[in-house]
Design a protein around this nucleic acid. Structure first.
Lengths: 329, 329
DNA sequence: ATGAAAGCGCTAACAA
DNA sequence: TTGTTAGCGCTTTCAT
């Protein structure tokens, strides 16, 4: 019934002070006498006054909201990541606005444009946007890109070289000499990065590595990757990510190839289902929650005026989780 | 560099009209001459004017944002649901604000309180709040609850009775006579609903059903459920949800019990990994995306002034997806 | 330490 | 059809 929102003026009137004083009591407690402050807080609580109104954003320009753009929220990769981001944001008094870009650069632009006037900054994950488009966006609002490097834009990435290295070492220890990389999407920055890292590691460890053609980062992508792999099989496979790896295991099993007895399979990311499939997936675990947390943390630092060293991406460590999909050659 | 936001006044000045005319050109195109409207839109585009500012929300009170509260975004159950919600919201020009309540009623209250002044409405999924708390919230802003019935608050639920019935029929056809229900959390509305539906179906089909003690809705919950189940085993099991079912399969397998040869297992929800585990899970599929879509759709209808028939929850159909975790008794 | 007044960008009366 | 004038709720000068 009583639909009217409790305003700062209501509190001011009830407390017998000016509205500006109430405002100060909340935002700059130091500038108000202790006594007055107490009284205001008490009255505000009684009246049920809520500070976080949008009106605050008008004069100051800061909304205390940040946008998190994800390409497909259905991808379990994002779950932990969002959780980490969410936690960091909440802790800092910020709210997260979700933008599902639906794997489409058109939707992505729309979503970002729509969000732009409303948020204090962006965290971009797996963008389809070009580097220059990202830089353009970054000119208007603070931006952090995740899992990609864009010059002049701060970013958070995982240590792909080290991760790929660990995977290869693991394989080498098991006696594998030749491994196949099941590629991800062509447009993926991470795919290129992983392939390069793999080749370097192969060189140092004296292994041979080849790769299949680009494929979607899904279970289906793994299936099609295996179709290609079957023409030139190797004793070990590293997949672009866990979903591809899971698809690969399925396809392999369907062909009567046993994992890990005949072929060892390694995934990347350590998403939730990795531990659930049979055999449980050996994978290079990305610090999902930490990535979300770090991205938001750094974004907020910039929002608050920090000047980031724009040319040095923050790189987070990953670790190899050995489960049951890898075995001796 | 040019940090200043393009305002409606800038456009007005550049187009040689009053600010109110520009405003009208965007919100009430009918009330502006075609010619003027065109000119304004052209100028606005040139200047890069973005309409969706927060300032709009001040006079009107409508922010075009809705909050989606989830208990744990890590739960794959939410992925499709959020996607559906997201799609419906975007289509209607609304943005989704994510509130991860972290399985805690304290955080939930905080998150909702924080979001309240900023959004036009709430979609509550798996709330920990009491019915009365929900009703209280609903007094202030439009609310839709998902998967729960709260009197006087509009809701969207799945057809649990029918779903449980299908599951029991399936089991009966396979020759099972006694089934165990692996319970979910005590506080869960859905758990009570499912158990009741199960008993009714059992009665009609002349089956016997018993249940284990309450457990968390996770893989771990399934494991502990099986520990209890082992004392009074039956040839079939229905789990509170897919995660519990997956945990149950694991625990069963670990005990040397074969699924489905020795025990048939049915899950509920049909989350993404259900199809990935071995054996693939037979499950009562909830229309996840449709739930999100419907909830948002109905919420927006209310936001726009529709008067909902508050006492009739919208019930969405579910269907049985038969995979490999069920077999003859 | 406090109050008064002037906006922030936009929309909604009310005139013209 | 268009312009003018008040605000929406809050913060921020500038006085006091």
């Amino acid at each position: 019934m009583d639909d009217r929102r409790v305003t700062i003026d209501d509190v001011a009137k009830a407390a017998g002070v000016a509205a500006s004083t109430v405002s100060r009591a909340f935002s700059r407690p130091g500038r108000v006498s202790f006594e007055t402050g107490e009284r205001i807080r008490r009255v505000a609580a009684e009246l049920g006054y809520r500070a976080g109104s949008l009106a605050r954003a008008l004069p100051s320009g800061a909304t205390s909201m940040i946008a998190l753009a994800v390409s497909d929220i259905t991808n379990p990769f994002y779950a932990e990541l969002i959780k980490g981001a969410q936690a960091a944001a909440t802790a800092a008094g910020y709210t997260i606005l979700l933008a599902d870009t639906q794997e489409s650069s058109v939707y992505e632009r729309q979503a970002l444009d729509r969000a732009a006037p409303t948020v204090d900054g962006f965290v971009l994950t797996t963008t389809r946007m070009s580097d220059s488009a990202i830089r353009m966006l970054a000119k208007q609002r603070p931006v952090i890109v995740l899992n990609r490097i864009v010059s002049d834009v701060p970013s958070v990435i995982t240590d792909n070289p080290r991760g790929m290295r660990r995977a290869m070492e693991h394989l080498a220890e098991l006696g594998h000499r030749r491994v196949t990389y099941l590629s991800g999407p062509e447009a993926s920055w991470a795919d290129g990065m992983r392939w390069r890292s793999l080749r370097e590691a192969a060189l140092e460890l004296e292994l041979t590595v080849r790769r299949t053609g680009h494929a979607p980062p899904t279970v289906g992508g793994g299936v099609s990757g295996v179709a290609e792999f079957a023409a030139h099989p190797t004793s070990a496979v590293i997949a672009y990510n866990d979903r591809v790896a899971i698809g690969a295991i399925r396809a392999l099993t369907a062909r009567g190839v046993r994992v890990p007895e005949d072929v060892s399979v390694i995934g990347i990311d350590n998403i939730y289902p990795a531990d659930l499939v049979t055999p449980a997936l050996t994978t290079v675990a990305a610090p999902l929650a930490a990535m979300g947390r770090t991205a938001v943390g750094n974004l907020l630092a910039i929002v608050r005026g920090a000047r980031p060293r724009e040319h040095e991406p923050v790189v987070l460590p990953c670790r190899l989780v050995v489960r049951d999909s890898t075995g001796p050659a």
